[in-house]
Design a protein around this nucleic acid. Structure first.
Length: 275
DNA sequence: AGGCAGGCTTTTA
DNA sequence: TAAAAGCCTGCC
């Protein structure tokens, strides 16, 4: 099924943006993308055309929403002025095509708890091991098996040893207690979609192993709060090197998170070697 | 009280 | 050997 998308949409840039960990490049040039219970193959044919290996119903009910295709990123990007903010302008020109995926809040929470103090290949490996250990098995459209992201119940039932075999290290306790809090109804992730990003952050940081960085990633990537602005080691460098007099958050509200993605990707993927 | 050093598992380059 | 999309604890 071929779709024409008339907006910023670049699979490779999204894959390298660090927001998703279950996009697997295939030999045929497509990505195999797992999301909750679902799996799809997507191939970019040119700047506007994409082959989705799924039926129309799945596209309408799952993937159009997941890729946030009802939002115009080019319109949001047009808010940046080359004269007044040349660094962000260059970053957004170079990285246009990134979109903020509407990922599952639970999967996002666990993924970013796992991400702390680790690089991306290691994060992806732990998530696959966790899916292997506790996720339901399913078959994709090409007849290959895959593992869904495991439920809170399945994760909560894993032993310390099983979690350590997923290479979680000291984070195993954080993963387990987050799963237990959700399972016991002490923590309602879905309800956080309806509160402000400040309130969601305040709530998320109460979970053990969740600090400001992980909480803002969950708000942005899992709750689709587009104003959330994760600050990690790379963003600290961007802010101190490029915006020593302060970053204009008010100017880009309520889309600070989208611009954060351009800055982060631009700095990490293109400029880091130069500095 | 609030800031800061040190520790934490493992992988990657 | 250092750094990696950090966070927690304990100390001052």
């Amino acid at each position: 099924m071929i779709k024409q998308i008339n907006d910023d949409f670049d699979l490779e840039r999204i894959a390298q943006s660090g927001q998703c960990f279950r996009w697997h490049p295939q030999a045929d040039g497509s990505y195999r993308i797992m999301h909750g219970e679902a799996c799809v193959y997507v191939e970019q044919l040119d700047s506007m055309h994409f082959r989705f290996d799924c039926d129309e119903v799945a596209f309408k009910e799952v993937w159009r929403d997941y890729f946030d295709l009802n939002e115009s990123y080019s319109a949001i990007r047009a808010r940046v002025d080359e004269e007044s903010d040349p660094f962000l302008w260059r970053a957004s020109e170079c990285e246009k095509g990134i979109r903020i995926l509407r990922q599952d809040p639970w999967e996002t929470l666990i993924s970013f708890i796992i991400s702390q103090n680790r690089n991306i290949p290691a994060i992806c490996r732990s998530i696959e091991l966790l899916a292997e250990a506790a996720g339901e098995e399913a078959e994709d459209r090409r007849g290959r098996m895959y593992r869904c992201f495991p439920s809170a119940e399945a994760v909560a039932s894993l032993t310390q040893d099983a979690l350590l075999r997923c290479k979680l290290g000291y984070r195993w306790k954080y993963v387990k207690s987050a799963a237990e809090a959700i399972l016991e109804g002490l923590f309602d992730l879905e309800a956080l979609k309806d509160v402000t990003d400040e309130e969601a952050m305040a709530s998320l940081v109460q979970l053990p192993g969740v600090g400001p960085k992980v909480a803002s990633c969950v708000a942005l990537f899992g709750l689709h709060q587009l104003d959330a602005f994760p600050v990690d080691t790379w963003m600290r460098k961007v802010l101190s090197n490029e915006y020593p007099q302060g970053y204009p958050f008010e100017k880009y509200s309520p889309y600070n998170g989208i611009f954060q993605q351009y800055l982060f990707a631009y700095y990490r993927n293109r400029l880091s070697a130069l500095k």
